Simulated assay, not measured.
Amino acid sequence: MKILVIQQKMIGDVLTSSILFEALRRKYPNAQLHYLINEHTFPVVQNHPFIDQFIFFTKAAKNSKKELLKLALSVKASKYDVVIDVYSKLSSNIITLFSAAKTKISYHKTYTTFVYTHNVKRKKASESKSLAIENRLQLLEPLDIDTQLIKPKIYLSDDEIEQSKVFLKAHGINLEKPIVMIGVLGSGANKTYPHQYIAEVIDTVFTETNAQILFNYIPKQKELAEDIYNNCNKETQQAIFFNVFGNSLREFLSITHHCNALIGNEGGAVNMAKALSVPTFSIFSPWIDKATWSLFEDEKNISVHLKDFKPEIYTKPEKTFKNDADKLYKKFTPNLFKEKLVCFLKNIKN
């Protein structure tokens, strides 16, 4: 049997959807399990023990109908028995349609039902506080796979872990003392906690833990990260290793493996830290639905949302406030969740 899972989305989505392979492998131990993803998201599923082959959705396929058709025809030539389309957008609709698989599964949309043999309706509420996980596992029901919640995992090699240890020591990091990674920036301005506010959070982290602090950012974001650094107290600045960061996603993952916590903007970095079993404290953008993405929360994985403290604002679904993100962020002051943050920091020190 050959099964293809399609998830042409961002890093957090690709990581979350990788749980399907663990369940599929249990049901079909001898099947060939393939994953079609955007090429830049590969590092979060690299070395995954249940995925036999990766197919990359390239920029060429995204920008050219001819290249998309070539990809769809190559999928058809592979003769898959089952296609599970988690992405469920036009390009994946086309790829699935061409696949000629006998079983085609995706989420229910009135205008694409003809493409799939099984159209699964998403849940609107979670039974386990992990709605994104539950909705993905629902896609396995047509295959008679009934499974408990599965936590996404990232698989680092021993060499990667050792090399990151050497890297950190070479840059003056003491591995015997607490290390905290700060997700200083979100994937966009409307997912980024205001600079002066995240600086206050970083000051609290240092005051409570005396930790060595790393910033998660990429080179093109350096100026924004520097502004956050400059908003921190002078004492906190002394504890920030501003120029210590991974030059690739795998390097970031390997460095994060050695951290006591990741704290900051909710997004891919938080999901990756959870998949590495690193405790997280995440700050949701005011327009993102926390119910869907607050995965596997406990005393070591905490998230906060403006709705937690000012529910009266949310007379409509969160996504309708996307254009009001800046205004709502200003209401989301750090003092609202400082007590929660301090409690979290006490837990990670123990």
Results as ranks from 00 to 15, higher is better:
Lys66Asp: 05
Val115Ser: 00
Glu67Leu: 01
Gln163Ala: 14
Ala100Gln: 15
Arg122Asn: 06
Glu127Gln: 06
Leu143Ile: 05
Leu73Phe: 09
Ser130His: 04
Lys65Trp: 05
Lys66Ser: 07
Phe167Gln: 06
Leu143Cys: 11
Tyr87Ile: 04
Pro142Ser: 04
Tyr87Lys: 09
Pro142Glu: 01
Val120Ser: 01
Ile94Glu: 04
Lys129Arg: 08
Ala72Glu: 01
Tyr80Met: 02
Leu73Tyr: 02
Leu73Ser: 09
Glu134Tyr: 06
Asp146Gly: 03
Tyr111Ser: 13
Ser78Val: 01
Ser92Lys: 08
Lys153Trp: 10
Ser99Tyr: 13
Leu140Pro: 02
Tyr116Val: 00
Ala77Ser: 11
Ala125Trp: 05
Val82Glu: 01
Lys76Ala: 00
Leu90Arg: 10
Lys89Met: 12
Tyr155Leu: 03
Leu156Phe: 02
Ser91Pro: 14
Asn119Met: 09
Asp144Phe: 13
Asp159Met: 12
Lys102Glu: 15
Lys102Asp: 14
His108Phe: 15
Leu131Arg: 05
Glu134Met: 09
Lys59Leu: 15
Glu134Cys: 10
Lys70Ser: 05
Ile84Asn: 14
Phe98Asn: 14
Glu134Leu: 13
Ala72Tyr: 00
Phe98His: 11
Ile133Asn: 15
Ser128Met: 07
Thr96Ser: 11
Leu68Cys: 03
Val120Asn: 02
Leu149Thr: 15
Leu71Tyr: 01
Ala100Asn: 15
Lys76Leu: 02
Ser164Val: 03
Leu156Ala: 04
Val83His: 10
Phe98Met: 12
Ser126Leu: 05
Ile95His: 01
Tyr107Ser: 01
Asn63Gly: 05
Ile150Pro: 00
Asn119Ile: 14
Lys79Val: 14
Ile150Tyr: 05
Val86Thr: 14
Ser106Phe: 06
Lys129Val: 00
Leu149Cys: 08
Ile161Cys: 04
Ala61Gly: 05
Lys102His: 11
Ser164Ala: 12
Ser74Trp: 02
Tyr111Val: 13
Lys62Thr: 13
Ser126Gln: 06
Ala101Phe: 08
Asp81Gln: 04
Phe167Val: 00
Ile133Trp: 03
Lys102Ile: 11
Ala72Met: 01
Val83Ala: 03
Gln148Cys: 07
Ser92Asn: 04
Leu90Asn: 07
Glu127His: 13
Asn93Val: 11
His108Glu: 14
Leu149Ile: 13
Lys65Glu: 04
Val166Tyr: 00
Glu141Phe: 11
Lys129His: 09
Val86Asn: 11
Tyr111Ile: 08
Lys153Asp: 07
Ile161Leu: 06
